[in-house]
């Protein structure tokens, strides 16, 4: 069983506990705002959120105790640089999807994710990703009528 460190509270875990309390408070606040008419069920639209909020708060307490005891499994040090590449890829794809079309937007996501895993150069992955996405676009959008946004590249051919 994990022993942990009894002297120092596990700070990140305390942050989780705080997030759970915040979520519970948010649910209670939003639910109180609702205007509810009486129903025959007696259990209206408010009870379920309240139960969930109560559960979250109780689990928050449990998490505080776990943090103080240091009973969470140990975590290895992680690198956030690679993650940032991937998140950037997802954000850019989301923003330019409508204008640039599926292939180019997904090509960028593909290239930046590959970069996140250490693959260089980005321009080459971008080319590969765009061609790959374009083939997928042809297959699914043209062949199987799935609606995927078209951009300048797609319009060039179809």
């Amino acid at each position: 069983m994990s022993t942990g460190n009894p002297r120092r509270p596990d700070r990140p875990v305390l942050v989780i506990a705080a997030a759970l309390f915040a979520l519970a408070a948010l649910i209670v606040w939003q639910t109180r705002e609702m205007q509810v008419a009486a129903t025959y069920a007696r259990v209206g639209p408010r009870q379920f959120p309240y139960v969930v909020a109560a559960g979250l708060a109780a689990l928050g307490v449990g998490t505080v105790i776990a943090a103080l005891r240091g009973s969470f499994p140990e975590r290895e040090k992680e690198e956030f640089g690679p993650m940032a590449w991937i998140v950037a890829g997802l954000v850019i794809q989301m923003l330019i999807l409508r204008t640039a079309g599926f292939s180019v937007a997904t090509g960028i996501l593909f290239a930046l994710s590959a970069r996140g895993f250490g693959r260089r150069p980005v321009w080459l992955s971008f080319l590969i990703g765009t061609v790959f996405s374009f083939l997928i676009w042809i297959l699914f959008a043209r062949g199987l009528q799935l609606s995927l946004p078209a951009g300048p590249l797609e319009r060039l051919f179809f």
Binding site: L90, A114, G116, S125, F132, F140, S147
Partner: peptide, 17 residues
């Protein structure tokens, strides 16, 4: 790097579709 880039592309493809 290709595998996970591909997974993300397919995951977003499904959502967009």
């Amino acid at each position: 790097h290709w595998l996970y880039a591909g997974i993300l592309s397919f995951a977003t493809l499904g959502t967009i579709g």
